Amino acid sequence: MAGVMESVNQRTQLVGQNRLELLLFRLEGKQIYGINVFKVKEVLQCPKLTNLPQSSSVVRGVAHIRGGTLPILDLSLATGNPPIQDLENKFVIITEYNIRVQGFLVNGVERIINMNWEDIQPPPKGTGHEHYLTAVTKYKDELVEIIDVEKILAEVSPVNDDLSDDIITEEVAASAPQIEVMIADDSKIARKQISKTLEKVGFVVRQFNDGKEAHDHLMDLLEQGINPADKYPILISDIEMPEMDGYTLTAEIRSNPRLKDLYVVLHTSLSGVFNKAMVSKVGADDFLAKFQPDLLGKMVIDRVVSLGLTAPQTPSEESK
C-alpha cells in the first residue's frame, strides 16, 4: 500500500494540464470507483473502530489515527448498497474535504491511474435525481464511477449554509438583483449551497455543470460581442470537474486576451493539499476552501463593492 501512495503530495505537476490522478478502489461488488489523489492523505488497513452513539448509520465508528479521532464512513452504505463486512481485512482512505478530515471505508484499494479530464464524463442520463455519481470514465475497458462525496458528506453531516445577516448592507441588497454571478461546479449539492448563499444576498446566479460548459458560454458571449468581464463581476469555479477542470478553465481564460480580465475565484473542497502557488500558476485571482458561506458571501460582496456595486464596465460604456 505504501507503494500505491508514494509521492501523493508531490503530484502538483498536473495543475493546469487538465489532468488528474485517480486512486481506484472497490466497495462490495466488482464495480470500480475513483477518488482524486489530491484529496487523499493516507490509505491504511481498517483500524479498530469505536462505536459513535447517535451517529448516522453510514458512520461505522471513529478511529484514533495519528493523534486524532476521525469518523469512518462506509461508502457502500452511503451510496445505498449493503454495508462492508469483515472490517479487519478492509481499508480506509483518509481524505480531506471541505476543511474536514474523515476516513472512507472501502473493500479494497487497487492502483493510481493518470487521466485526462477530457476522458472524465458526466454521469449518463437516467441514473436518477438522487444518484451519487459526479462523473464516470473508463480504464482498461472497465467503467470507473466517481462518487459525489460532497453529497454524501452533506447528508451524513450537513454543513451550515446560512449567511449571516450582518454581511449584507442595505446598499448591497438594493444593488444585488441587477448583478449576475457565474458559478461552475459539477456537484449538484455544491451548486445548491453556493446558489443559496449568493441568492440570499440577492445576486442572480448563473450555473454551469463543468468547466467546458462554462468556457463554451464565455466563448458564446464573445461571439455575441459581449465581454464576459462586463457581464459577470466574478466567476466562482470548482477545480474537479469532468471534461475541463477549474485549473484549465482558468488557464484558458488567462490565455485569451478577450477573457483575461474576468475575475476568477477557485472554490474547492481540495483544501488539504491545495496551496496559493497553484492559484498563481494558473492565474486565478483568489481561492476559497469549501464550504464557508460567510467567507463566500463576503468575497463576492467585496468584489462588487470594489466595482461600485455594478458589474464591470468598459470605458466606452461608462461614458454613455
Rank of each mutant, 00 (worst) to 15 (best):
F203L: 06
A154C: 03
T248H: 12
A173H: 09
A174T: 06
Q54L: 14
H267N: 13
D141F: 07
V264I: 13
L153Y: 07
K30Q: 12
Y139W: 15
Y263P: 00
I152Y: 01
M182Y: 13
G16Q: 00
D245H: 11
E155R: 14
I179K: 00
M244D: 01
K140V: 08
K260P: 06
V159W: 09
T197Q: 01
R100H: 04
V156R: 08
L143N: 05
A311P: 10
K212H: 14
V305D: 02
P312H: 04
L262K: 02
L235I: 13
R19Q: 14
I112D: 06
H129G: 06
K125L: 10
I253K: 03
D161L: 12
S56C: 03
L163F: 04
Q54G: 03
V159Y: 10
G67I: 01
I146D: 02
D261C: 05
G211S: 05
V40A: 00
L105N: 00
P312E: 11
G29I: 07
V149F: 09
S269D: 03
A284C: 11
H131E: 07
L20I: 12
E171Q: 14
I234N: 02
E42H: 15
E145D: 08
E180M: 13
L105V: 00
G67D: 03
M1G: 09
K151F: 05
T268F: 13
E252M: 12
D186K: 14
R26Q: 15
G29P: 05
V156W: 01
I112K: 12
R206Q: 11
F287V: 15
I94S: 00
N89K: 15
D86N: 14
I65N: 04
G225E: 11
T50E: 14
N98F: 02
P53V: 05
L249G: 04
R19A: 11
E96T: 15
I147V: 15
V40K: 04
Q224S: 13
V204K: 13
V62Q: 01
G34P: 09
Q224P: 08
R206G: 04
E118N: 06
A173L: 09
L73V: 06
G16I: 02
Q85K: 10
A154F: 08
T79Q: 08
F25G: 02
I72C: 05
S7K: 13
E150A: 12
V204N: 15
M219K: 12
E155H: 10
V15F: 07
G68K: 03
F38R: 11
N107P: 07
V282D: 00
S157R: 12
N89C: 10
I113K: 04
I179Y: 01
N256S: 13
D161C: 10
P122V: 02
F287S: 10
K39N: 06
H217W: 11
P233W: 05
T250S: 01
